[in-house]
Simulated scan of single mutants.
Amino acid sequence: MPLPGATRAVDRAIADRRIAGAVVLVSRDGELVHEQAAGMADLESQTPMTPTTVFRLASVTKPVTAVATMHLVEQGALDLTSPITHWLPDFRPTLADGSEPDVTVDHLLTHTAGLAYRKAEPPGSDYDRLEVSDGLDRTDLTLAENLARIGRTTLRALPGTEFRYSLAYDVLGALIAAATGTTLQRAFHELISEPLRLHSLGFSVGERTPVATAYSDGLIPITDEPIPNGINVSRYSPERIFDPTQWPSGGTGAAAHAHDIRSILDTVALGGGTLLRSSTVAEMYAGRISQELTPTVRESFGRGWAVTSPDTSPLLGLPVHAVHWGGVYGHSWSIDPATRTVVVALTNTTPEGMAGAFPTDVARAAHVDLAEGRLD
Rank of each mutant, 00 (worst) to 15 (best):
2 P>G: 14
3 L>R: 11
3 L>P: 13
16 D>I: 05
16 D>A: 14
29 D>P: 09
33 V>N: 10
39 G>C: 01
41 A>E: 06
42 D>R: 04
47 T>K: 09
49 M>H: 02
50 T>V: 12
53 T>M: 09
54 V>F: 08
57 L>G: 04
57 L>Q: 01
62 K>R: 13
65 T>Y: 05
66 A>M: 00
66 A>K: 02
68 A>M: 15
68 A>T: 10
76 G>W: 05
81 T>K: 13
82 S>F: 01
87 W>T: 04
93 P>D: 11
95 L>A: 08
98 G>M: 09
99 S>Y: 00
100 E>P: 07
102 D>L: 00
108 L>G: 07
109 L>V: 11
115 L>K: 02
116 A>N: 13
117 Y>W: 03
120 A>G: 10
125 S>V: 04
132 V>Q: 15
133 S>C: 12
133 S>E: 04
133 S>K: 02
137 D>H: 11
161 T>C: 06
171 V>K: 13
174 A>N: 15
175 L>R: 13
179 A>N: 06
182 T>Q: 15
185 Q>D: 15
188 F>V: 04
189 H>D: 15
191 L>D: 08
206 G>T: 06
206 G>E: 11
207 E>H: 14
211 V>W: 03
212 A>R: 01
219 L>P: 01
219 L>Q: 06
227 I>S: 13
227 I>Y: 09
235 R>L: 10
239 E>S: 08
239 E>L: 01
240 R>E: 00
244 P>V: 03
250 G>S: 00
256 A>Y: 05
258 A>R: 14
258 A>D: 12
259 H>E: 10
265 L>I: 09
285 Y>K: 06
286 A>K: 14
291 Q>F: 13
296 T>G: 04
297 V>H: 06
305 W>C: 10
305 W>R: 07
308 T>E: 08
309 S>D: 03
309 S>T: 06
311 D>A: 12
314 P>N: 08
318 L>G: 09
331 H>M: 07
333 W>F: 09
335 I>F: 04
336 D>V: 00
336 D>G: 07
339 T>A: 12
341 T>N: 11
346 L>Q: 12
348 N>C: 02
350 T>W: 07
351 P>M: 02
352 E>Y: 05
352 E>R: 02
355 A>K: 01
361 D>P: 03
361 D>F: 00
365 A>L: 08
368 V>T: 15
370 L>A: 13
375 L>C: 07
376 D>F: 10
